[in-house]
């Protein structure tokens, strides 16, 4: 599904140039659950952002579903993103002004799904995430675990082929964290490819494969059995 080759990314300020990704090559198959680990500043989040087409690389190739996307413009990237990729963030990133239902509905609006179909799909996914009873609440009225469930619901409502999760349990206690990991595992078992950045060895154990990064390069790959 994903094949990156010699991917490079630099961050430049007036005086210093920092290499975030240094000729990194990775591939991820459809249906895989991959965890990316490594110390702070190793390039995990940069990689995730490029994979999510939120950022563009400075060099190398990124083939998504057989299409070279490294040099797509913002509009094309947005288009590809909204149909194929779901995001889960550490800090949930729900819109405070929208209710649970409306937050989850948002990706469907951007992909032009008709209103009646939207209601059906949002209800379906909220039900699955067991937060249907909170559908009219605002994010700030929910616990952290509930907020992350909403965020996952939002990430999956469009039935994306790929979910990118950036430390999804980072802001949660262990019990809520486990729930979230169970949810991701379920999604993966249903066929969704998942790439997750995490600091937690415990969470990484849910994945099929762990890619360890250091200074923008792969240092080790562990296959989980």
């Amino acid at each position: 599904m994903i094949k990156i080759t010699d991917l490079e990314k630099f961050y430049r300020t007036e005086e210093v140039e920092t290499i975030a990704l240094n000729k990194l090559s990775i591939h991820v198959n459809t249906g895989e659950f991959v965890a990316i680990m490594g110390p702070s500043g190793c390039g995990k989040s940069t990689l995730l952002n490029i994979l999510g087409m939120l950022d563009d690389p400075d060099g190398g190739s990124y083939v998504f579903n057989g299409v070279e996307v490294a040099h797509f413009n913002e509009r094309k990237r947005a288009d590809l993103r909204k149909h194929n990729i779901g995001f889960v963030f550490q800090s949930f990133n729900l819109i405070d002004e929208l209710t649970v239902f409306e937050n989850v509905e948002l990706p469907l609006i951007y992909t032009g799904v008709p209103s009646s179909e939207r209601v059906k799909r949002v209800e379906e996914v909220l039900d699955k995430m067991q937060i249907m009873h909170r559908r009219n609440h605002y994010p700030q009225q929910l616990s952290g675990g509930q907020q992350q469930r909403v965020a996952i619901a939002r990430a999956v409502v469009n039935k994306p082929k790929l979910i990118l999760a950036d430390e999804p349990t980072g802001n949660l206690d262990s019990s809520n964290g486990n729930d979230v990991m169970e949810l991701l595992t379920d999604l993966n078992e249903q066929g969704t490819t998942i790439i997750m950045v995490t600091h937690s060895e415990h969470d990484a154990r849910y994945s099929h494969r762990i890619i360890r990064l250091l200074d923008g390069q792969t240092v080790m790959e562990n296959i989980m059995i």
Partner: peptide, 16 residues
């Protein structure tokens, strides 16, 4: 800003 970010991630274009 965060709202802009989230909307962009979810597929909103600059024009929208």
């Amino acid at each position: 800003a965060r709202e802009v970010g989230v909307r962009k991630v979810l597929g909103a274009g600059k024009n929208s």
